[in-house]
Design a binder for these strands. Structure first.
Lengths: 133, 133
DNA sequence: CTATCTGTTATAGTTCATCTATATCAGATA
DNA sequence: TATCTGATATAGATGAACTATAACAGATAG
């Protein structure tokens, strides 16, 4: 199974799919040109409606993560994970980062430990072998 | 104004309130014993229904951030931001951190730059003077 | 005591996001 | 031709989010 979701989660299914794909790219499991399953195929695997997968793919396309053709289906874009940061993205991203780190601080996670976990996660990216295209 | 929200945001209002309070505690603007505005007062200031504020406060209470009494209203809890991390919180938190960092990586934000921004945000916590109780 | 503020709870309604269910059309392919 | 695909339209069910009132009880100031 390329992807697993949690139907009981409060996070919408289409967003879970988006998150898993983004994480798979960061991990290196998906590389440039990697083909994602067809919407109907993935929907069948996950036992959900294909419109939900369609929404997730459309979200990934809007965010520039994948490219969708009628011929080749959904494939990971060239510059995903390698190109320069999009203009304005970093600032918007840091706002969300700040909220997440504040939550850690309030719940007793020390700054040093939080920073260490950030480093661990970042260090784990790109280490997994990509699926051969 | 203690708090600002964005009515046009996709983030629910009650969650925005929760986030702002958590960030204010991390920043040091709110310390142990700091009193939050009454639900009706804050609702009036934000021009929203007081039930929405009530939901935000109830969420903060469930997460152990504030304490609510009929006498003293909503005040920041003793151990918020200082006590040891709650059991299981760090692991659940790291899952969300991983999703956020993966998104940065995919959008071209380098690991070094991402880690630097984490450090900056963490370093900015606790520097602002607390409101005198 | 009265008035007012507070938190708490209940009910009800609207709006919208989410997800599902079908159906149709067109391009690609075996 | 048959089948897979993406793309699109419509419709319905469910629940979250937000608002609108209302009512009750404890606390407090006048």
């Amino acid at each position: 199974m390329l992807l697993t979701i949690d139907l009981d989660s409060e996070v919408p299914i289409y967003q879970q799919i988006r998150d898993r794909v983004v994480e798979a790219i960061a991990d290196g499991e998906l590389v440039e040109g990697s083909a994602l399953p067809s919407t109907r195929q993935l929907a069948a695997d996950l036992a959900i409606n294909f419109h939900t997968v369609n929404k997730a793919y459309d979200l990934l396309r809007q965010q520039g993560v994948i490219r969708i053709n009628r011929k080749s289906g959904a494939v990971v874009r060239r510059d995903a994970g390698s190109g320069p940061a999009e203009a304005g993205f970093a600032d918007e991203w840091q706002v969300r980062l700040r909220t997440l780190l504040a939550e850690a601080a309030v719940h007793g996670l020390g700054a040093d430990e939080a920073l260490q976990r950030c480093g661990e996660v970042l260090g784990s990216f790109g280490t997994k072998k990509g699926t051969p295209a």
